[in-house]
């Protein structure tokens, strides 16, 4: 009789559960979560953009499941929250509009966390997922030997109207994030771009970062590279081709919430554009 499930098998379970639902977790399931705007850089006094959010293998084709739309956050150039308009979730993608009526850089993110529980009952493995409160009120946390995992994500992109500014780039200090040293709307082919990976606001060393060029469905071999963050959390890369790119990283660890210890998986993804210098 199976006594204990290893962490890696729990991860597999989570990946399976995720790919079957709308909470796929980045590289663990090879399904990629992304947000992509109709334009990354705009001019003029006021503009609108439309934004797609989806989880798919092909970048950036929405052909698998939509990103959830209940935790979309727009940070305006002055640091205040912006409005999401005309949000709708279809079969394969979530779509929404954002009015840009301030000059500067906007951060557009989808964030969220889901809890997974696994325990043995009468010789069978039981699994539930939901918010911590849902698991608690459902009595899940009371089971003997219950194993918990928290999966938190940040899926984001940046858009600039007029001259870029830094306010919306400030880290929130929560989960896995990327602090741009190169402005994310100022990434040019043949020029190095630098970022610092942060975990709960602190530089995260030794984490793998995957960078994939979009339109991979037309490539014989997927154009991707995997970097490892340095001791100061920094990564540097020089994209050679113009186009849209996807960057992703994950951190595994332990966490404690409301006195309950658990495994934790933090996921971060960024969509950015590389333009001609």
């Amino acid at each position: 009789m199976k006594k204990q499930t290893s962490f890696s098998s729990l991860l597999r379970v989570l990946a399976l559960a995720a790919s079957a639902s709308i909470c796929a977790i980045g590289a663990a399931s090879a399904h990629r979560m992304w947000i992509t705007p109709s334009a990354f850089t705009l001019s003029g006094e006021e503009q609108w953009i439309t934004v797609d959010g989806a989880i798919s293998n092909d970048l950036f084709f929405a052909n698998h499941v939509p990103l959830t739309s209940d935790a979309l956050i727009v940070t305006r150039p002055d640091g205040q929250s912006g409005e999401i308009e005309n949000a709708a979730t279809g079969r394969f993608r979530t779509v929404f509009d954002v009015q840009l009526n301030q000059q500067g850089t906007y951060r557009i993110a989808e964030t969220g966390a889901l809890f997974f529980a696994e325990w043995q009952e009468n010789g069978e493995t039981q699994r539930r997922r939901g918010s911590l409160e849902q698991l608690r009120s459902g009595g899940v946390l009371a089971h003997d030997g219950v194993r918990l995992m928290r999966s938190a994500r940040r899926v984001e992109t940046y858009v600039t109207l007029g001259a870029p500014n830094e306010t919306a780039l400030r880290p929130t200090g929560q989960g896995l994030e990327l602090r741009p040293l190169t402005h994310p709307n100022d990434i040019f082919a043949g020029e190095p771009a630098r970022f610092v990976l942060l975990q709960n606001g602190e530089p995260a060393a030794g984490l793998q970062v995957e960078i994939v060029k979009g339109d991979d469905r037309y490539a014989e071999a997927v154009q991707s590279q995997t970097l490892t963050s340095a001791a100061d959390g920094s990564i540097s890369f020089t994209p050679q081709q113009v186009g849209r790119y996807w960057l992703a990283s994950q951190a595994e660890g332990v966490a404690e919430m409301d006195g309950v210890p658990m495994r934790q998986l933090l996921t971060y993804t960024l969509t950015f554009e590389v333009v001609q210098p």
Binding site: L42, S43, G44, P164, D186, V275
Partner: peptide, 21 residues
Amino acid sequence: EGAGETWLVDIRQWWRRIGRT
């Protein structure tokens, strides 16, 4: 088709170096 400034961004190098500020 809207404000003419909308397409200034298409003068890409100029927009990066000068136009946006």
